[in-house]
Amino acid sequence: MMKEKTEILINSNQIEKKEKSFATIHPGRRRAEKAFKWISRIMTWSTVFILLVLLYHLGKEGWEYIDWQFLDSYPSRKVAKAGIKAGLWGTVWLIITTAVITIPIGVASALFLEEYGVKGKIGKLIEINVSNLAGVPSIVYGLLGLAVFVRWFNFERSILSGALTLGLLIMPVIIVATREAVKAVPDSIRFGAYALGAHKWQVVFYHVLPVALPGIITGVILALSRAIGETAPLIIIGALAYVSFVPESVMDEFTVMPIQIYNWASRPQEEFHQLAASGIVALLALMLTLNFIAVFIRIKTTKRNIQ
């Protein structure tokens, strides 16, 4: 007890002696710090809260109608009979067509920028251009597709028109992702191949591309999963909400899940809103599957690279 007291005395002497220094921190500053930290914390966790509320709401509204019959029926005026079959198959057709068209072109563009072009003026121009294209609103792509593919090329309101439009839309995403993957390929691999007298194209196609492939696939899948959710550009090019058949070729008319969801959600009746929620659950499930595949590939390949 005594000892403690003397210690305090010594301490207060010290503080008096050092009056000019700033030995004590004003309690207001501590309070401000604490408040700031708490505000940041609350704001941060609110994002989690928002996501949980969103998912809960969708699940609650959507669970009633989601079943096999829902996935295997065409749209109908009667809620109980309505389903998303046309949209589901339309989405599958559209995404596959988009992938087939876009992936080679996007990857080739990225390889050009990363391995050949960027230093030159044209490379620089393309680079700036790509980053600006990424910021163009999706609806503008819809108008481009409408004018060029639907009317000028006369592809009508076909899957092909839709795929070409979406292809242009996600091209910047694929290019950026592929460039990241190609950038991550160590130069030692390139130099090793050059040292054996390889030409540039041989280096690029036989050495760089295979190493970058896992990264490219991940990026491409993420871009495609973004394309699945796109609605506006497809409405612009005239994808229809009432389609009661499954497409059989890329020249067929089509609808996609998001348009079907939009159609249901924009009706006043409560039951159709629930139908829309069911459609959303199916749509998110499809996207989630694609994302899992991407994550799976990422994990698999990072493991391999570590070994």
Binding site: E7, I10, N11, Q14, K18, S21, F22, A23, T24, I25
Partner: peptide, 17 residues
């Protein structure tokens, strides 16, 4: 530091000294 253990003090105070 001045008979006190720095490790037990408020880091901000320590840094002012």
């Amino acid at each position: 530091f001045e008979k006190k253990n720095i490790l037990k003090l408020d880091p901000m105070e320590v840094r002012t000294r």
